[in-house]
């Protein structure tokens, strides 16, 4: 469904992705793990079209995303892909319900009742049904992240990207968020999650281990329990 083929990316003199090839199947749950600076988030950015690779290409449903124009990429981000960040990145001047509707505020056409109902439904789903009128500042960190998940859900995406979604949360809230993401995955959404937490990584169907901008393990589904690469084993152990 989604595939990065020989992708390289650098910022200035720093090579952050070095000939990386990864693929995500339809409805698959893939975790990307690795040390800080290993290129996990850069890989997520490339896969989610937030940035274009310097070389190589990304395929989505057989189409070369790298060669797509700006309009097509915007449509992909708007309809097929959703991204959850470590920091929730909610707009502080909108209520929780309005934040969930933000993806549909990109034109001068007013948002219809259908979208409002769907947004309320998504908030209900993440357990914030009664807090739609609250501003983000009046919600806890875990609740804010749940609103961000509802914002990602409202678009009914094909692929959900999560960049350390539990990174700024305590264990209890983190567990709740990952549980929620797993539920979504069981409903058929492809999930690509970057995490430091090997406990969460073990829940994935496949784990991609990265080091110095390269994938050092990830071909086998059970790589976390049986890493085939010594570096990967070391990374997993340290994590």
């Amino acid at each position: 469904m989604l595939q990065a083929v020989n992708v390289s990316k650098s910022y200035g003199d720093t090579l952050v992705l070095d000939d990386v090839s990864v693929q995500v199947g339809k409805g698959e749950f893939v975790c990307v793990v690795g040390r800080s600076g290993s290129g996990k988030s850069s890989l997520l950015n490339v896969l989610s079209t937030l940035t274009r690779p310097d070389s190589g290409h990304v395929l989505y449903q057989g189409e070369n995303v790298t060669a797509m124009g700006e309009g097509r990429i915007n449509r992909l981000r708007h309809k097929d892909f959703s991204i959850i960040f470590q920091l929730h990145h909610l707009l502080p001047y909108l209520t929780a319900l309005e934040n969930v509707m933000v993806p549909f505020m990109n034109t001068l056409r007013p948002i219809g009742q259908e979208i409002r109902d769907k947004a309320a439904e998504c908030l209900e789903r993440v357990g914030l049904g009664g807090k739609g009128n609250r501003l983000p500042g009046n919600l806890s960190g875990g609740e804010q992240q749940r609103v961000a998940i509802a914002r990602a859900l409202v678009k009914s995406p094909e692929v959900l990207f999560a960049d350390e979604p539990t990174g700024s949360l305590d264990k209890r809230n983190g567990d709740g968020i990952v549980e929620l993401l797993r539920d979504l995955h069981t409903e058929g959404v492809s999930l690509v999650m970057v995490t430091h937490d090997m406990g969460y990584a073990r829940l994935a169907q496949r784990t991609v281990v990265m080091e110095d901008g390269r994938v050092v393990d990830g071909e086998e589904v059970e790589c976390v329990t049986h890493p085939k690469d010594a570096v990967a084993g070391e990374i997993i152990t340290q994590a």
Binding site: S48, L50, E70, G71, N74, R75, L76, R77, H78, K79, I83, F85, H89, L91, V102, P103, N106, T107, R151
Partner: peptide
């Protein structure tokens, strides 16, 4: 800047 980044990640065009 972060707000702009989020909006772009949600599919907002440059025009929007």
């Amino acid at each position: 800047k972060h707000e702009i980044g989020v909006l772009r990640s949600l599919g907002y065009s440059r025009g929007s």
